[in-house]
Every structure is written in structure tokens, then in C-alpha cells.
Design a binder for these strands. Sequence first.
DNA 1: TTGAAAGCGCTAACAA
DNA 2: TTGTTAGCGCTTTCAA
Lengths: 364, 364
Amino acid sequence: MTVTMRDVAKRAGVSVITVSRVVNESGYVQAETRARVRAAIQALHYIPNQMASSLRSRQTRSIALMLPTIANSFWTTIARGVEDEAEARGYSVFLCNTDYDDAKEGRYFEALLRNRVDGIAIVPSEASGPRLRTLQQRQMPLVQIHHKLDDVEADVVRSDSYGAAVALTQSLIDAGARHIAYIGGPLSMSPGRNRLDGFRAALTCAAIADEPDRIKIGNADPNMGYRLVTELTHAGTPIDAVMIANSRMAVGAIRALTELGKRIPEEIAIAAYYDIATLDIYSSALDVYSPVITTAIQPAYDMGRLSVRRLFERIGGMAGPSDDLILPTRIVPPAAPVPGAHNVERLRMPHPVPQDVPVVATAH
Amino acid sequence: MTVTMRDVAKRAGVSVITVSRVVNESGYVQAETRARVRAAIQALHYIPNQMASSLRSRQTRSIALMLPTIANSFWTTIARGVEDEAEARGYSVFLCNTDYDDAKEGRYFEALLRNRVDGIAIVPSEASGPRLRTLQQRQMPLVQIHHKLDDVEADVVRSDSYGAAVALTQSLIDAGARHIAYIGGPLSMSPGRNRLDGFRAALTCAAIADEPDRIKIGNADPNMGYRLVTELTHAGTPIDAVMIANSRMAVGAIRALTELGKRIPEEIAIAAYYDIATLDIYSSALDVYSPVITTAIQPAYDMGRLSVRRLFERIGGMAGPSDDLILPTRIVPPAAPVPGAHNVERLRMPHPVPQDVPVVATAH
DNA sequence: TTGAAAGCGCTAACAA
DNA sequence: TTGTTAGCGCTTTCAA
């Protein structure tokens, strides 16, 4: 029924191991023999059985990418990078979308372990720690993307949150702002912490005191951005600028400001993370105002590619302490608003991939 | 080194096949024996090897989903439906993103065949036909999503393009339009053909002649939408409404109308497909104007779920001729524009999944 | 440069 | 209700 190596071997008049060598391009095979085997493969429409190969060789030629959601282009752009890099090496990718659901993450881990994937690239959640440690006990090669869990010893690939926050904040200061509010995501994850640190460092640098009243932290979603801006303005704290450390919060925050009748940037200047090319349904306000705010855009595609490159190094047996790759975040200065045009071009994702990706810093 | 069924069996004092029965919950095992085996599994941290199981049982418990892109929420919402349905049955999903690249599609097929996935759900491209036929020769269960290739005998799950086009067009006629232009995607694929057919049927029904000048076909992207609207207006054809049969084209088309200074809907009324919750970077114009246009929204999540349900029926050995499931497309009437609000709520995707999905029609 | 033998970890088929 | 035997299709190891 199904065509196996046996059948190919028989037809080519060689042994199965010779067929294996031809298929995998491993070991020595005479050109003439190889041609005969190839002909037999063609004639019989032979397709190697990956299960059998994996069982015997103990490598599946598959990796997994675990993502909190695929409903947002930041994550899917990372996925494309991962996929392209894996595909280039003949690896398949299990794309696991946890939907921010811890139980779902657990079930995925179970499945990946059963499937004996060769390695896992993961955007960990706060609760992933114990699972990642279990994986490491089982010698599973692991790379963390975007978030770094402090108690997990594994390579990390992320963007320069601190530097980007400094640059965004400085752009506001340069524009004359002195009463700068901060809106950002939870401090339980590293990007949240680093962005707040960068904000504070920039203020300190300019000899501006950071007022706790003006720092608002919440979940990274548009509604929270909306709410925090509302809180800020209702409290009556004087504010002439807002630094928003998260794209989704920025969308809600800017909508709130708009509804409050604030002119941007005349009354309130804005600097924000803004790296969703595919904006979500709340996007219009941000899209309309993006020309007049300074934005930070993370190299999502490269984060995906480089994390898998590193993963393959570990799969290949690379030893050494875990590494922390920090990629530069692009800072885009505000442009004059052009009616009808929405500065589309500058927001486009880097589709033609740079062959060599510059790295800002590697820690450790 | 790795813990196998042997080890578990030894510890539990049973044979390997008994362990297999406990793990797979198949066959008869006494409660007391099962408990002993479970204890041994826990104690040894045993995780079944899916490769070995697949090799022997000839089923991998994995399926594939092949998509043209993951950069747009219509497709990722389908993916979520596929994933949830598969997960509920303990299946893993290979998510294959072809990026509209035929060579990439080919490489994916190769990989899926090697991995002996149990079935494939695919959004076929025009060029997929020969590959799908090859798969069928190999008895691979197959479901087509969204597009139906005429020369492929396989189940289809799609939305009611014809009906939605009729409804959209009628909404324009009801609003008093008589010179209605049509902008839509290629007629080489079934949705493109069906939407144009629906448009024409609605005109005929209202005793309005369809002018070839007012029908513009092109690639399904914002730039093309922009260009076709520009062509239409430059040609001087009188137009009081536009039916846009594709979300991405709608975005560009509406922008073009805006830049031309047309008031919507006073000068030109619009009805459009609009089923991207996560809009792309061109979205602002559509988002701003969506309250004043009639929109069609496809049940993407359910398309994913139902296609996999059908796929499992085929994997389970269901015979019978291939089926064509046509799901209803939701038609959302225009709402009065509300400054600051963007009719966000009505565009939200159906996340809590209906247990039983209504079906408009099944052909054949 | 090629091949023979063994076995990866599991389950189908049968037997008890 | 449990076990025995055989073998899925490939690659590792060793030998020629």
C-alpha cells in the first residue's frame, strides 16, 4: 500500500540504507547509484515517513512557537520570522496560540512534549515559569521571546525597551514638555519594567522630577488606556505630554484625549509604542493622530528569525551560558499631519528581510 | 534515559499493552490496575511518544491548516476556530502560512506529506488544484475553506457570497441608488464570481441594467481599490453608489472617494464586505466611514470550526459525496455616524462560540 | 562505497 | 480483563 524505503531499494537494486543515504544526503553514495535511487523514488512517488525517521533518530525536525495571541500583527510578524527561518532549515513549526489562557498553554506543552519537538520558542506569560523549568529538566532547547522571566535560565531575544522608552521620553522633553505622564503595561513583565525605567531615566537626565501621580500602570489593552487617561485628567494633575509604553493602550488613551477635546500635540504631546501594522478595531484615533506623535516600532520579524537561529544553535548542541539578545527599536519622529494621508508608508512592516540584522547589545 | 511504556509497565507490574490501554483509555482495564498504572506514570514522569504511536497506528493525531496569510484577522480568526476544534479532540495543528507564495505552498505540502498529517484544511489558491488532486490520490482527507476549486472533489466550507452580495446591493437600491458601481476581486476564484453574480441578480431584480463600465475587477488589495475608484470617476460614468465586494479593496476605495471630496453617503452611498476586525494600516478611512455604510461580515471563526468538524468526519471514514457548506454572512445596516465612537462593538468577532451553528444551505 | 542486523517505542491482532 | 507476538519504517552501529 504505502511505498516504503524497501520498495525503493528493491526497484533501485540497492539496500534500504543506501536509499536512506540518498534521501538524507548523508554518507557516501556513488553518483550513479544515487541517480538510480532517485529515479526509483520518482517512479514510485516515494515520500519518506517522518515518524519512522523521528522514532529512530530521536529528532523530529519540528519546533514549536508559543504565542499569547495571533489576533495582532506584532505577534504574527514574529511568527512569520520564526516560520521563515525554520523552513529554511527544513523544520516544521507547531504554532501554538494560547489566547492568554494558562490552561491552554498547559495543554499545548503536553502536546509538544508528546510530539517530542526539537525545541520551543516561547513568549512566556507570568505563569510560564514552572513549565519552562520542567522543560529544561527534560533538556528541551528553549528560547524566550519578548519577555524575560528572571527565574528561567534560557536564551532571550527581545527589543530594547529601555532605550526606546528613553528616546520617546526625550522626544517629548525636546518638544518642550515638562509635565509628562506615563501610561504603561504591568510591571510584572520585563518590558513593562524596562520601559518605566527608561522613562524615569530620561526625566532624571533632564532634571525633571517624576511624580508618582502621573505614572499609571494597567493591563495592556485599549480600554485600560482610555481609563487611565480619564483618571489622569479627572485628578487634575497638570500634564503637557504623555508617554505611552504600549501600542494597544495608546489607541484607547488617544481616543480618550480626543473625546476630551485635547489638541495633539498643541495641548498634549504624545510619544508611544506603536508597532501594530495591522491595527485593531480601535485603531482609527491612533491612525489619525500618528503623524503627530513620536512612535517606537519593534523589529518583530527579526525577533522571530533571530530567536529561531539561536534555538537551532542550542538544538545543535551549543553550550555556554544563556544569552540575552536585545534588538534596536526604531524610533520614528512625528511628521506634520497631512490631510487624507496617514503616513502609511512609514508604518509598513519590514517585509524584505535584511540579511544581517544589527544587534544593539547582548547581555551576560 | 527516556522513560518508556516498558518502564511504566515494570513499575506497575503489568504488561506494556495494559499501560497503552490506560494511556489511550481504550479496551478494558480494571479500576485497580488503572490506578497502579497511573501512579507509575506520575512517579516516572512518563510522557507517551507520539512518533512511536503514530508509526504503529498509522495516525498522527495532527492536521494542517494552510492559509494564504496570517497578517489579517479574517484568516487568523479562521485559524482560531480550526485550532479550538482540533484541540478539543486532542489533535495538533500545523499552521501553514503560504504568504501567497506558490513555491512555499509546495514546500509545505511536501512537509505535510512527510509528516503524514491525518487531514488538511486549506484555503486553496488558483494554483492549488494539481496539488490537491495529488493529495486525494493519496487518500488524504481534505476540506477547502472559503474558496471552492471547481475541478477538485472535496468538501467545502464557505460563506454565502452570493446572498451577501444581493443583500448589500439591495441596501443601496433601497436607499435610492440607481447608478451603482461594482468593485471586486478576481473572478478566477469562487467568491469573486459569486459576489458579482449576486450584485447582478439584485440589479436585475430591481429592473436596473448593469453597465459593464461600472464593473471593475482587480486584485484584492487597498491600492487596487483606490485605483479602480479613481478610474471610475475619471471616466465620468455617473455613479451614486458603490458596492465593494472585498474588505481590503474597500479600504482603498473609500480613501480615494474621501480624497476626491465625495461625501458618503450623500453623494456616493457605499455597501461593502468588511470583515477584518483587525484592520490593516490603511484602515482609518474605512473605520471612520463604516458607520455610514452597509457591511457584510463573514463567520470566520465558525468557518474554521466547521471545516475541521467536517475534516474529522472524513478522517473518521465518512463516505459519501463531497459537501458544500455555505454559512450565512452577517449584514450590518448603516448606523448614524457618532463623533468619537466608531461602532466598535458591532465589529467585534464572535468569540464566545455558538454551540450549534446555523447553516444556510448545503449544496449537492 | 555499500550492506546486514538490530531496535527506536508503540499498538494491531490474536490468544488466554 | 490481561498478555504475547510481531512489526510499523526508518536509522544506528558495525562490518565488509
